[in-house]
Computed example of a mutant assay.
Amino acid sequence: MAGKVVLYYFNGRGKMESIRWLLTVAGVEFDEVYLTTREQYEKLLSDGDLMFQQVPMVEMDGMKLIQTKAILNYIAEKYNLHGKDLKDRVMINMYSEGVIDLMEMIMMLPFSADKTAQLETIQSKAKGRYLPVFEKALSGPIYLVGGRISCADVQLLECTLMLEELFAGILAEFSNIKSFQGRMTRIPAIGTFLQPGSQRKPRPDEIYANTVKEVFNFKLPLK
């Protein structure tokens, strides 16, 4: 019998946060090992645990999984969060990768030399490129694809909450997304995850950014 799922990452959001969200919605309990020193990272490398010298890394079902999208797809497939057929899955993947593109811009904000310019880019692309797609997709359906919750829905909720932390009124023009957000937050597992004391991580601060820089010697192999 496989042991408990274990996540190896920093004590912060980054690319692991979407994995935390998806495991939570799937009802999977997990432990976490936080990287705080260069030595921990080098130990993972010397043990051969990081195929491409990158984190996140997830121990699950007797495997050591790396590459964020691969991990998310595995969880989604295992827990029926990836659509009913091939056509559903490709639509879910398209929506999911669009959300990831936007979230990656937000993730890089703590490491940006010009945060004001980065914020302007995030807001502009969110409102002009990404949110209109999801607003249209949610004009009738409860969920993005196939009438049932998928990993793309979970990621979209995560992303919209991140956007609202940065730009309080950004969803004012996107009523369908705002309604979707309300429906999603009423799901019991999600409601619990949004409460204080859960394994959801707070907005990244200077301590988080400095830890990442120290562990990677200012390199950011986070793909």
Rank of each mutant, 00 (worst) to 15 (best):
V58R: 02
E59S: 13
E59V: 07
M60W: 14
G62M: 11
M63L: 12
L65N: 07
I66P: 01
K69S: 12
A70H: 09
I71V: 15
L72D: 02
N73R: 14
Y74I: 11
I75W: 03
A76M: 06
A76Y: 02
K78F: 05
H82V: 00
G83H: 04
K84N: 14
K84I: 06
L86N: 04
K87P: 04
K87H: 13
D88I: 07
D88C: 12
R89W: 06
V90W: 09
V90S: 14
M91V: 05
M91C: 07
M91P: 01
I92N: 02
N93P: 00
Y95V: 09
Y95I: 06
S96T: 04
S96L: 05
S96G: 02
V99E: 06
I100N: 09
D101I: 01
D101R: 06
L102G: 00
I106Y: 01
M107W: 07
M107E: 09
M107S: 11
P110D: 08
S112A: 15
K115N: 07
A117Q: 15
L119H: 03
T121H: 10
T121L: 13
T121N: 13
K125N: 12
A126W: 07
G128H: 13
Y130C: 04
L131S: 05
V133L: 15
V133N: 05
F134D: 08
E135L: 14
A137R: 12
L138G: 04
S139G: 13
S139Q: 12
